[in-house]
Amino acid sequence: EEKRQVKQVAKEKLLEQSPNSKVQVRRVQKQGNTIRVELELRTNGKKENYTVEVERQGNTWTVKRITRT
């Protein structure tokens, strides 16, 4: 359940930055209360990979860091 929520948060964050792209989740890793989500962003056939680190704060998820990989 929490992985599902985190995927959603990570996707939304990337789509905010580039709204007309397609996002696909590649991998989800958990480390303590930080969850790392690896995503693939496609814009006009151009692929970019991103890693989004999401942290739990109380009962909400906040995006800590977005890295292009």
Rank of each mutant, 00 (worst) to 15 (best):
E1I: 04
E1D: 07
E1S: 08
E1H: 08
E1G: 07
E2Y: 04
E2I: 12
E2R: 05
E2G: 05
E2H: 07
E2V: 08
K3L: 15
K3C: 14
K3S: 13
R4D: 12
R4P: 02
Q5V: 10
Q5G: 09
Q5W: 08
Q5K: 11
Q5R: 14
Q5Y: 09
V6H: 02
V6C: 05
V6A: 15
V6W: 07
V6K: 02
K7Q: 14
Q8P: 02
Q8V: 06
Q8M: 08
Q8S: 07
Q8I: 10
V9N: 02
V9S: 02
V9D: 01
V9K: 06
V9H: 04
A10V: 10
A10E: 01
A10Q: 01
A10D: 01
A10P: 01
K11V: 15
K11M: 15
K11N: 02
K11H: 03
K11S: 10
K11Y: 05
E12W: 04
E12T: 08
E12P: 01
K13H: 08
K13V: 13
K13E: 03
K13M: 09
K13F: 12
K13A: 15
L14A: 05
L14I: 10
L14H: 01
L14W: 02
L14T: 02
L14E: 01
L14G: 02
L14Y: 01
L15C: 04
L15R: 05
L15A: 04
E16S: 08
E16K: 05
Q17W: 08
Q17G: 09
Q17E: 06
Q17H: 12
Q17K: 10
S18G: 02
S18R: 10
S18P: 01
S18C: 11
S18D: 05
S18V: 12
S18H: 15
S18W: 15
S18K: 11
P19I: 03
P19T: 03
P19R: 03
P19W: 02
P19S: 03
P19N: 03
P19Y: 02
N20K: 08
N20R: 07
N20C: 07
S21F: 03
S21D: 02
S21N: 02
S21L: 02
K22S: 11
K22C: 08
K22L: 13
K22W: 13
V23Q: 01
V23F: 02
V23D: 00
V23S: 02
V23G: 01
V23N: 00
V23P: 03
V23R: 01
V23L: 04
Q24C: 10
Q24D: 07
Q24Y: 15
Q24A: 12
V25C: 04
V25M: 03
V25R: 01
V25T: 03
V25L: 04
R26K: 13
R26H: 08
R26M: 13
R26S: 06
R26N: 07
R26L: 15
R26F: 09
R26V: 14
R27T: 06
R27K: 08
R27S: 11
R27A: 08
V28E: 01
V28Y: 15
V28H: 02
Q29M: 14
Q29R: 14
Q29F: 15
Q29N: 11
Q29G: 06
K30Q: 14
K30P: 10
Q31G: 05
Q31D: 12
Q31E: 13
Q31M: 15
Q31I: 15
Q31T: 13
G32A: 05
G32N: 05
G32S: 04
G32F: 06
G32I: 03
N33Y: 07
N33L: 09
N33K: 10
N33T: 11
N33E: 09
N33F: 09
N33M: 10
N33Q: 09
T34F: 10
T34M: 11
T34C: 06
T34K: 06
T34V: 13
I35V: 11
I35P: 00
I35Y: 15
R36H: 13
R36V: 13
R36C: 07
R36E: 07
R36A: 08
R36W: 14
R36P: 00
V37R: 00
V37H: 00
V37T: 00
V37G: 00
E38T: 13
E38D: 12
E38Q: 11
E38C: 08
E38V: 11
E38Y: 15
L39N: 00
L39K: 00
L39M: 09
L39Y: 02
E40A: 07
E40V: 14
E40Q: 11
E40L: 12
E40W: 12
L41N: 01
L41R: 03
L41H: 02
R42A: 07
R42Q: 10
R42D: 14
R42P: 00
R42L: 13
T43I: 10
T43G: 08
T43R: 06
T43M: 09
T43D: 08
N44H: 11
N44R: 09
N44E: 12
N44W: 09
N44V: 07
N44P: 06
G45S: 09
G45T: 07
G45N: 08
G45C: 05
K46F: 10
K46G: 07
K46W: 10
K47R: 13
K47D: 04
K47E: 05
E48H: 06
E48W: 11
E48K: 05
E48I: 08
E48A: 08
E48V: 08
N49L: 15
Y50I: 05
Y50E: 00
Y50M: 03
T51R: 06
T51V: 14
T51P: 00
T51F: 09
T51C: 07
V52A: 06
V52R: 00
V52E: 00
V52F: 02
V52M: 05
V52N: 00
V52T: 01
V52S: 00
E53G: 02
E53Q: 06
E53R: 03
E53D: 10
E53N: 03
E53A: 04
V54K: 00
V54P: 00
V54C: 06
V54Q: 00
V54A: 02
V54Y: 04
E55I: 13
E55N: 04
E55D: 05
E55M: 11
R56H: 06
R56F: 11
R56E: 03
R56G: 05
R56P: 04
Q57Y: 13
Q57M: 12
Q57S: 12
Q57N: 12
Q57I: 14
Q57D: 13
Q57C: 07
Q57K: 10
G58H: 06
G58Q: 06
G58T: 03
G58D: 10
N59H: 08
N59E: 12
N59S: 08
N59W: 07
T60A: 11
W61E: 00
W61P: 01
W61T: 02
W61L: 08
W61F: 10
T62Q: 12
T62V: 14
T62N: 08
V63N: 00
V63D: 00
V63G: 00
V63T: 02
V63R: 00
V63S: 01
V63C: 04
V63I: 07
K64E: 03
K64Y: 08
K64W: 04
K64V: 15
R65D: 07
R65W: 09
I66D: 00
I66A: 02
I66E: 00
I66H: 01
I66V: 12
I66N: 00
T67F: 14
T67Y: 15
T67N: 06
T67P: 00
T67A: 07
T67K: 07
R68S: 05
R68H: 09
R68M: 12
R68P: 07
R68F: 08
R68A: 06
T69G: 09
